[in-house]
Design a binder for these strands. Structure first.
Lengths: 165, 165
DNA sequence: CACAATTAAATTGCGCACAACTAAATGGCG
DNA sequence: CGCCATTTAGTTGTGCGCAATTTAATTGTG
């Protein structure tokens, strides 16, 4: 009775909506995990995880950064970064040092090993890109779409926050 | 063409590659988390998480399912599903029953409460869709792209498995 | 100067994802 | 029939993501 049974090109019953929705949210969820899986394989050589790789990319690009700035680049908070950075430190790739100027702040610095790892990481993008089967242009387009989606969703999360309606 | 460097303008140094890579993988990572964040807000009313919502969608659409089938629909293994289903059971939304026919299998069944929750869930897709700011067609296109990406990555993960290169 | 508000990290707690392993039931094959 | 490989769930351990809280340093204000 409440069961869907779409009448031809019917005006989307409630059941249809739930099915459509599953496809949308599920697709992104699955894609993200699939991507993660390929990175896991490729990064195994380097001995780091995918989120750790993102941190290293940020450091290679911008140089030493305080945890705060790192979090802004990656959209991650200290709850996620603190333990992750400890693991990178244990692996000998970074050091964490309290800033002398502002004792609240912790500077994340690449060690020599961390800098050296970059040489072995340069092969990663090509392997990943090859895995997608997409060409540069397709990837660029998808990225643009996703960034657009992210900024929309971030904005929506603010207005949707409980108590703000 | 081992190196698909766009020689026409930017020579794409190794640094450029890493920067590009950061943008690509980061975009997907960020989009996935942003999506998750909006779902977290919207699903708070229903008292379930995003992955739990995916399980409920599968059950609403296909009816009772063994854990195995559920995992195939969602691409999740028992390591993820077992504790998740326990929480759904504790919330009174599903029951888990050993199949009489095959004692290895566990049937996941919707409770009355689980069925009833569907009525309150039908509003979710519209709220999510509104949050994206995309129209139906844009979403469909993005979904297609993501599904394509996922199947490519899944295939690649198999051939990239350690020991296969 | 004293004191409240703000800021930066870290910590705690919960849930998800996944690899690796265990336990139990089933099916096949000699 | 008896034994072994396979199948299905569950368990364990590690790491990520995030909300909420805590601690310490800094800033702002009277």
């Amino acid at each position: 009775m409440t069961t869907p049974a779409p009448t031809d090109q019917a005006p989307a019953s409630q059941g249809d909506w739930l099915r459509l929705d599953q496809q949308i949210c599920f697709s992104l969820h699955a894609a993200s995990r699939a991507f993660n899986g390929v990175y896991r394989v490729v990064l195994k050589d380097l001995g780091i995880t995918y989120p750790q790789y993102l941190v290293m990319l940020a450091l290679w690009e911008h140089g030493d950064l305080p945890v705060k700035k790192l979090g802004e680049h990656l959209r991650l908070d200290s709850g996620t970064l603190s333990p992750l950075l400890k693991r990178l430190e244990a692996a000998g790739l970074v050091r964490r040092e309290r800033s002398a100027r502002d004792e609240r702040s912790v500077e994340v610095r690449l060690t020599e090993q961390g800098v050296a790892l970059r040489e072995r990481a340069v092969q990663v993008p090509r392997r990943i890109t090859a895995s997608t089967g997409f060409d540069i242009e397709e990837i660029r387009e998808l990225r643009t779409r996703l960034d657009q989606l992210t900024s929309m969703l971030d904005a929506a999360a603010l207005t949707e926050t409980p108590g703000c309606e």
